[in-house]
Design a protein around this nucleic acid. Structure first.
Length: 179
DNA sequence: CGTGTTTGACCGGCGC
DNA sequence: GCGCCGGTCAAACACG
């Protein structure tokens, strides 16, 4: 059960950019995130556009030329790993690198685990989740940083076609995401 | 019984 | 064509 009542919100809620007035609350350990998308891809989710430190957001189109960017910090070795597989119209992807003991960062949505794979060059497995809401195709994958296992890398892919089931998030969704 | 997890099988893309 | 690799499927299982 990922649902958390509004009167007792999981602290991890605040790690999600849409849930906090400051998307980089250092005291909470959120160190970085990337928006993997833009350019020819679909528009990023309005929910994810709530950010105040644009210098830390690296559009996919700028990642290719640099030998070492925050992409590497996030455990993404090269542009192929970012652009690869699904160059065509799969929507926005965004990766968070979060310092956390927990691997499951409750973002207010309900996720069903559908796979687990060990990845090359990493001692840590990667877990695959789908949003359980019918018709919503959003996926996320969660893995620990290959180099520093105190960090969790969470990658979201797609845009939710529905509001969060959590009232706490609903407020933010209504504020930021409705068009 | 409904819902979510586990886990090996399977599949498709890519490089050689 | 073959093997590697990342991603997904689905049957079995666990648990309320």
């Amino acid at each position: 059960m990922n649902f958390v009542p509004a009167e007792n919100p999981n602290p991890n809620y605040s790690l999600f950019p849409g849930n906090h007035s400051d998307p980089y609350p250092d005291e909470l350990g959120l160190s970085d995130y990337l928006i993997l998308g833009g350019g020819s891809l679909l528009e990023p989710s309005p929910l994810l556009e709530v950010k105040s430190a644009p210098e830390q957001v690296i559009p996919m189109t700028t990642l290719g030329g640099s030998t070492h960017t925050r992409a590497a910090d996030a455990g993404i070795e090269n542009e192929n790993e970012i652009e690869g597989k699904r160059k065509v119209g799969k929507g926005c992807r965004i990766a968070f690198r979060t310092k956390s003991e927990q691997e499951i960062l409750d973002d207010g949505f309900r996720w069903r685990k559908y796979g687990k794979k060990s990845v090359k060059n990493s001692p840590n497995p990667r877990n695959y989740y789908k949003c359980t809401n019918g018709g919503c195709n959003v996926k996320k994958r969660v893995e620990r940083d290959r180099d520093d296992s105190s960090y969790v890398i969470t990658t979201y892919e797609g845009v939710h076609t529905h509001p969060s089931p959590a009232p706490f998030l609903m407020h933010n969704y209504n504020n930021y995401a409705h068009t």
